[in-house]
Every structure is written in structure tokens, then in C-alpha cells.
């Protein structure tokens, strides 16, 4: 249920980004790369993916039991 709402919201945002920013030119980015359609969505997806993957792979090294320092 919540998942479906989230997916609908995401699709709407992507559509809005393409329509408002790319077709109607309501905004402008600082870098060339921002001209890619739906850059925000890509950034959000890849960025959070990056964080999760780095964190998970890091946790193999740094995660210890709670009494590690005792």
C-alpha cells in the first residue's frame, strides 16, 4: 500500500522534472551534467545507493560486538 503511493509519487516527480525543467525551462543548473533529464531523481537514487553500499561493505570491517571495548 505505502509502497504503491511512494512509487506513484516518484513517477510524478520524474514527470514534473522533465516537463517543468526540460520542456518549460523553469530552472537552470550549475553544471552541464545537470542538464540530463530527471537529474535529481538519478542523483537521489545513485547517491543513496552509494551510501548504502559503502556503509554495508564498510560494516564488514568495522562492526564489532557491543562488548568489544570492555
Amino acid at each position: 500500500m505505502y509502497r504503491r503511493i511512494l512509487y506513484i509519487v516518484c513517477v510524478t516527480i520524474v514527470l514534473l522534472e522533465i516537463v517543468l525543467l526540460k520542456l518549460m525551462h523553469l530552472g537552470h543548473g550549475y553544471f552541464k551534467i545537470e542538464e540530463i533529464p530527471a537529474f535529481g531523481a538519478i542523483l537521489g537514487f545513485l547517491g543513496s545507493l552509494f551510501v548504502v553500499i559503502v556503509a554495508k561493505s564498510l560494516s564488514k570491517v568495522i562492526t564489532k560486538r557491543e562488548d568489544y571495548y570492555d
Binding site: 509502497r3 511512494l6 512509487y7 509519487v9 516518484c10 516527480i13 520524474v14 514534473l16 522534472e17 517543468l20 525543467l21 530552472g27 530527471a38 537529474f39 535529481g40 531523481a41 542523483l43 537521489g44 537514487f45 547517491g47 543513496s48 545507493l49 548504502v52 554495508k56 560494516s59 570491517v61 568495522i62 562492526t63 564489532k64 560486538r65 557491543e66 568489544y68
Partner: peptide, 30 residues
């Protein structure tokens, strides 16, 4: 729009990794 998109797609990633991100009773070295 950028911000909203980041919010939305981060939510998607969270849903994908919901099981993996479940908190565990461990500490992390720093």
C-alpha cells in the same frame, strides 16, 4: 524538484534495502 526527487528515490532505495538496513545490536569502530 531536485530535493523532492532525492527524497522520493531515496525512499525507493530504502524500501529495496529494508531488510538489509534493519538495525543490529552491534557497535562500529571509528
Amino acid at each position: 524538484l531536485d530535493t523532492l526527487a532525492i527524497f522520493g528515490f531515496t525512499g525507493v532505495v530504502f524500501l529495496i534495502f529494508l531488510k538489509k538496513l534493519k538495525p543490529k545490536p552491534y557497535i562500529n569502530l571509528d
